[in-house]
Amino acid sequence: MKRMQFGKRTCVFLDRDGVINKKLPEGQYITRPEQIELLPGVVEAIRTLNQAGCIALVVTNQRAIGLGLLSEMGLAEIHEHLRLELEARGARLDAIYYCPHDKNSCHCRKPEIGMIKRAFQDFPDASANNSILIGDSISDIEAGRRAGIPTIFIHGDPANQKPGAEKAIGLADAKAHSLLSAVNQFIFSNP
């Protein structure tokens, strides 16, 4: 499989649930900060991106808001908890972008690319030419492809994979079992 090398100013887009933290079973949503459980190796992976000067961004669909199960203030508390937990261990997220809408009601919900476009506005050094998207669903991989960004599919826990995972594996530029293995194998490995 082709090795992807990225230089200075690389932008790494990360899905949240299933890539950074443990994903709940399909149809269940994280609605409280204490439900965030970092996956093994995530702190090391994000710290590695930080130390290399990469921009580490989260792009996450948060349908629970659109369904009325979570407020935007509640999501802000969840994301603050996530940031503080990472920072306490020496890792940093540069920004978190989220879509609060239900399906088919906006231009920001992945597979649409509204969150990615906004990130490119907020971080002018980032572009499709120096970015990568790491996700665990078909909507993640399709968003990366629509934005012209290479993608890595994270297999994660097979019991919690979303429908369309097989299609996502076929569309992704690479696949890995975890964020740490994606960072080590494809972003910072020698060709």
Rank of each mutant, 00 (worst) to 15 (best):
K2M: 10
R3L: 07
R3D: 03
R3H: 07
M4C: 03
M4H: 09
R9Q: 14
R9C: 04
T10I: 00
F13W: 06
F13V: 04
L14N: 02
R16W: 07
V19S: 04
N21K: 01
L24P: 08
G27K: 11
P33M: 08
P33H: 06
P33S: 04
L39T: 07
L39G: 06
V42K: 01
E44R: 14
A45I: 11
A45K: 12
I46S: 01
T48G: 05
T48E: 15
T48R: 15
Q51H: 03
G53N: 08
I55Q: 11
T60W: 02
A64T: 02
A64N: 06
I65Y: 02
G66R: 09
G68M: 10
L70T: 05
S71R: 12
E72D: 07
E77I: 00
I78H: 03
I78V: 10
H79R: 04
H79P: 09
E80I: 02
E80T: 15
L82A: 07
L82W: 08
L82V: 05
L82Q: 07
L82N: 03
E85D: 14
L86R: 10
R89M: 09
A91N: 13
R92K: 15
R92C: 13
L93E: 14
D94V: 11
I96T: 12
I96A: 06
I96F: 07
Y97T: 02
Y98G: 04
Y98H: 14
H101F: 00
C106S: 10
H107V: 11
R109L: 09
R109W: 11
R109V: 11
K110N: 04
G114A: 10
R118E: 15
A119F: 10
A119L: 10
D122F: 13
D122C: 10
S127R: 05
S127G: 11
S131I: 02
I132M: 04
L133S: 00
I134S: 09
G135V: 02
S137T: 15
I138E: 11
I138G: 00
D140P: 04
I141Y: 00
A147N: 12
P150G: 01
T151C: 03
I152C: 09
H155R: 14
G156R: 10
D157G: 00
N160C: 13
K162N: 09
P163D: 09
A165F: 14
E166G: 03
E166A: 11
E166I: 08
K167V: 08
K167M: 06
A172H: 05
A172K: 05
D173M: 03
A174E: 07
A174L: 07
H177E: 15
L179C: 02
L179W: 01
L180K: 13
L180G: 00
S181L: 06
S181W: 02
Q185H: 13
N190C: 09
